[in-house]
């Protein structure tokens, strides 16, 4: 049922087919963890049913005041996270180019030294007592979103003998249908590590990789406070239902 107070007609068309050549395949041996974790048989395809077309709604009411401020949401009162202060902002669009409102965006990242607050991360860079590394927001009516954080550091990881992840922020996106569910990573314009990363390299199309690189956005910086990066994200679009599901002759 439509959300109370909403004058939008809910969209119920099936989602555009996913372009599996554009995404990284399951098996990318340069990223060793994928070798034993990649399905080897063909996916079974079918057109969306209600189970894929539908999805839960997350209301703005669930958000806390500091949920989109990683500089402060784990910090002691009066303190803040260490690092290069940045604003990340952009729009969530669908493949038809329209802003998608009400998308739950969750993000997580290492601190400015490249260390995650996680017991499995043993990197020697220190934890920042004022940085947790998670945040979330919900897109506005035009699909827009913004959050404040520190630029994460690059970090070494056990894959090849000397592999480093480029600076990145992990993004989880929850659109309107469960079939739109997506996790990706945002990289930073100009980072030379992007083109050496085996995880990035799982994507074969250069333009697809560039779609994950946020641009420095001087017009959105706050002078004497924070730099800004613009990162737009695209979710699967819905087909128009104009001529669907009409019995012949009607």
């Amino acid at each position: 049922m439509p959300e109370p107070g909403s004058n939008r007609t809910p969209e119920t068309g099936a989602f555009f087919q996913r372009d599996r050549q554009w995404h990284p395949p399951a098996f990318t041996p340069g990223y060793k963890s994928s070798v034993l974790r990649s399905p080897q048989k063909a996916l079974v395809a079918f057109d969306n049913t209600l189970s894929e077309l539908t999805g839960p709604v997350f209301g703005h009411a669930m958000l806390g005041e500091l949920d989109n401020d990683l500089i402060h949401n784990f910090a002691k009162p009066g303190e803040s996270a260490i690092g290069e202060r940045i604003i990340v902002h952009g729009r969530v669009l669908d493949e038809r180019g329209r802003g998608v409102p009400g998308v739950l965006l969750e993000f997580w990242q290492a601190n400015s030294g490249g260390r995650y607050r996680h017991k499995k991360d043993g990197y020697l860079a220190p934890l920042d007592p004022n940085f947790g590394g998670c945040g979330r927001t919900i897109t506005a009516e035009d699909g827009g979103y913004a959050f404040r954080t520190v630029r994460p550091g690059p970090y070494p990881w056990p894959n090849g003998p000397n592999d480093w992840r480029p600076a990145h922020i992990h993004f989880s996106l929850f659109g309107h249908g469960f079939a739109q569910r997506l996790i990706t990573q945002m990289y930073f314009e100009g980072d030379p590590l992007i083109w050496r990363c085996p995880i990035v390299g799982g994507i074969s199309n250069r333009a697809a990789i560039e779609a994950l690189i946020a641009a420095l956005d001087m017009q959105s910086t706050i002078p004497m406070d924070a730099l800004a990066y613009k990162f737009d994200i695209v979710l699967r679009g819905r087909r128009s239902t104009l001529f669907e599901n009409r019995p012949e002759g009607n």
Binding site: F16, G97, E106, W108, R117, G132, A207, L212, G237
Partner: peptide
């Protein structure tokens, strides 16, 4: 005039930080 879906990237080993922070002691 169509856009391409943003390519997926792995959730990585620290997905809990973002999606279940209380589970991993944040």
């Amino acid at each position: 005039d169509r856009l391409k879906e943003s390519p997926s990237q792995t959730a990585g080993p620290y997905v809990h930080i973002g999606l279940t922070p209380n589970f991993c002691d944040i």
